[in-house]
Every structure is written in structure tokens, then in C-alpha cells.
Write a protein that binds this DNA or RNA. Sequence first.
DNA 1: TCCTTGACGAGAT
DNA 2: CATCTCGCCAAGG
Length: 109
Amino acid sequence: MSVMTQMAPFERFYSVIRTIPAGCVCTYGRIAELAGMPRRARLVGHALKVLPDGSEVPWWRVLNSQGRISARGLGGSDEYQRLLLEEEGVAFDASGRVDFRRHGWPRQD
DNA sequence: TCCTTGACGAGAT
DNA sequence: CATCTCGCCAAGG
């Protein structure tokens, strides 16, 4: 079996993330649910982590359940993520949180 | 193969 | 609000 026959097992997640509209955000847990894999939030984080640079998957639109950017540690893309979101019109409050009622997707209603 | 680490999350304290 | 526990599971040592 060639190394290519076994594609990345995270396509389900990437597909869902690709549908998040610009200016909107979603959570790791919600992505997992929408992908049909409830309780796999942690795996979504891993999927984004291994995403190659320059990927078309809008990883920056994924936040944790508190509406915050998950810390990545040294050399992380935390700041960059916030920048990308703000460019799309996403607002952060004084404590660095995004209001899901305003930018959350899918909309609850 | 065992053990530890995580871009996580919900619930209990 | 801050911790802690537990569920989950791919990766890397």
C-alpha cells in the first residue's frame, strides 16, 4: 500500500470548516458534531494542527467553546488568527472573547 | 506497545 | 471565575 492510498482521516472536519462563512466562527465541538463525530472536539484541534501551511481550509474561524482563540504555545499562530478574524469583521471584547450571538455559526435562532 | 501530550468540552465543586 | 475529572483519540517518544 502506498502512503497516498490512506488519505488524511480528517476530511470530514475540513469539509465542515470550509462551509463557515467569512466573518463567522464555530467551535471545535460543534465542528465535530456537524461532521458526525460528537465528542471528538479534541481531534478537530489535532486536525487543524496538522493542516499544511497555505491550506484553503479556514482554520482561523474555529474557536473554543468560550469564544476564545485556543493557545498554541511558542511560535503559535494565535495573534495571526485574531488578525485574520478582525479583518473579516469579527469583534473581540476586552477579555479576548467573541460573541457567538453575533458571529456564531450556524446561527441558533 | 505503553505512556504522555494536546488548537477540546461538559459537568461538578 | 478557577479547578478538577473524565471522555476521546492521533501522534510521538
